[in-house]
Amino acid sequence: MTGDWLDIGSVDQITPGNARTLPVLGGEEIAIFRTTSGDFHALVNRCPHKQGPLSQGIVHGGVVTCPLHNWNISLKTGEALGEDKGCVPVIPLKVDAGRIFLLRDAVIGKRAA
């Protein structure tokens, strides 16, 4: 067992400035981002505006721009930036020994009851 954290893959599987997706059966898909400066973040893959897949947006600084209507979402807080209002859940993430871990409860908890 992996304990409180789920090992979802190696850091090499996401190139800087990119995102990969993690479908959760019975729950909401998660997007894992790697910024150009090398930080990792995980958000529910759903823009608070019109549910656009954030994983497909352009990542710049600590922000992703939604591909549907260009809302800017903070990767750190999940909050919409600028004039837009809304928030997407953040999944706690840690990187250890080259592996990416997500907080198990946060991932599983997103599954529909």
């Binding site: 893959g9 599987q13 990119n18 990969r20 997706t21 993690l22 479908p23 894992i32 599983i108």
Partner: peptide, 10 residues
Amino acid sequence: ELHQHIAQVR
């Protein structure tokens, strides 16, 4: 990698 999920949770 642009077309594939990193993993899946079941």
